[in-house]
């Protein structure tokens, strides 16, 4: 991998992550998140992790975005949550402490691309040299996934199916299940509940951000 290109992609990743966290329009945040995943998949391809790159591009960048957009259209497009400054200032030292700890721990890690790193001395050498005669499969990741470590894969597949069933269990409306949809229009004591209507109308919800952009373009 060419190192300057690597660094540029990392800078793009950082910018996309900061914007995705900070932008008000949630659909824009999801678009930035998909771009973040796509550049991460480029980085995976750069270090010869082709299988991971393919999965990240298909599932991480594609399907995650679709799921996010579906959920945002089902709820509310604009992030109207008020800033909680007290919480931010209590969290920042915590994050700084975490990063400092990690930085201290990373001094014990091997250099980048070191062939003598301890992680490479283990069982994966056996996998690489034995895969072709054991399973007739040139792609070692596939033979690892479905043969040498297939119990791991069995567990992961079970997790995926369980996640789908859990989502069904949480969200499917059943008969006689009418406590939904009444609480949303509840004229309760809070103020921000009324500010967030359902946004099936594109014209109303789209007017404000584009008006800002148009003013910026005319100046």
């Amino acid at each position: 991998m060419i190192v300057p290109l690597d660094i540029i992609i990392f800078l793009v990743l950082i910018i996309a992550a900061v914007l995705a966290i900070n932008v008000k329009d949630l659909l824009a945040a999801v678009a930035l998140l998909a771009g973040y995943s796509l550049f991460a998949s480029l980085l995976f391809a750069g270090v010869n992790a082709v299988d991971v790159s393919l999965v990240e591009a298909a599932l991480g960048a594609g399907l995650t975005g679709v799921l996010f957009i579906g959920a945002i259209l089902a709820t509310s497009r604009h992030s109207t949550a008020k800033r909680n400054l007290r919480r931010r200032w209590t969290m920042l030292p915590l994050i700084a402490a975490f990063i400092g700890l990690m930085l201290f721990a990373s001094t014990g890690l091997p250099d980048r691309g070191d062939p003598e790193a301890p992680a490479h001395q283990g069982v994966s050498r056996t996998y690489l040299s034995q895969s072709l005669e054991d399973t007739e499969t040139p792609n070692v990741v596939t033979s690892l996934l479905a043969d040498y470590r297939s119990q791991d894969t069995l567990g992961e597949t079970l997790v995926i199916v369980t996640a789908a069933l859990a989502a069904m269990l949480v969200l499917v409306r059943r008969e006689g299940d009418d406590e939904d949809d009444t609480r949303g229009s509840d004229p309760g004591g809070d103020t921000s509940g009324e500010a967030r209507g359902t946004t099936d109308d594109e014209q109303e919800s789209g007017r404000d951000p584009y008006a800002d952009e148009r003013e910026g373009g005319r100046r």
């Binding site: 082709v50 499969t137 040139p138």
Partner: peptide, 11 residues
């Protein structure tokens, strides 16, 4: 085609 190139069940 997961045997010969990138890919497999998940992707």
């Amino acid at each position: 085609h997961g045997h010969y190139g990138p890919g497999g069940g998940f992707a």
